[in-house]
Amino acid sequence: MPQLQSTLGDFSVLPISVPGVPAYPKSTVHHLYVRKNTPKIPTPDDDRSLFLTNVPVDSTHLHIRSLFTSLVGAGRFESVTFEDERKPSSQALADLLPAQAVRLATHAKKRKRADDEDAEHAREEELARLPPTWNRPLRKAGGTAVVVLADEKSVERVLKSVAKANKTGKYPVWGEGLPAQSTILGAKWLKAHIRLNFPDTDLVEAAVNQFFTVYNNREKEAAELAKRLRNEPDEDGFVTVTSGGGRTAPAKRAQAEEARRKMLEKAEKKREELSNFYRFQLRERKKEEEAELVKRFEEDRRRVDAMREKRGKFRPES
């Protein structure tokens, strides 16, 4: 059946036919939206990748691979990255890097971190990661993914075959030809989750240890960096003055707060001793009290007015 609408904005609409399951026997059509990938920050693979949105929530790498295989045949699909996977790992990295180091690193604007250093950090962090509790995470409903294909030509072929599918009404089938275990959700999936909630303690211990190794190293690095920076003028010729090189321990902070509180208390006490001492104070206090009284009265009146506006507040229930 020919379609009137095969595009939506700059997306091509790829309808996927979804066979019914016992709980919902109706077979349905899912709409996937495809376009050439044009990210704001270009990467070398952009020319041969596609951007998908509205991916089904139960998508896996296998699902997407089989979908593209059915569109353009085998051998052209390279990889898929889902939105939740694409989340910059640098966020977690930044969290992991001791806070001071991050701040100081941004100070040294020109400092370029070599790519391999980044990769090294990522590897370290991967080891410190705790085991996942879901063996098959659900995708966000309406989420996106980026598919990398073999070459530029494949991209064109995919788009062409999408248009063809629209025209002929022969839609690719979701999850067709996949091995049974890769489609499993439901009871086994939840069971696995319950089991994965309690990982092997050795694994966890190793991850925690690895974390602290990295953490301690980085903290040391940061301290050294801070020390170095103390004597180095930045591009405008200013030298950043930092305190003592060490961190301000929270204990010290607590002490400072304590001291502040004591000081305030002292001042309060002194003030109290001198209140009711002069006549003008008495007079002023009285004035304040009166003002307070008037304020309260007005407030009450306002509240009653507000109650009146709401119906039924003054009508006894029957």
Binding site: A23, T28, V29, H31, P56, G186
Partner: peptide, 23 residues
Amino acid sequence: VEVDREAILAEVARIGGELVERI
């Protein structure tokens, strides 16, 4: 665009697997 209710229900049924008897 509008919410694709049927597609969502089909997804829900797939997620629930054998746990969902019927929708």
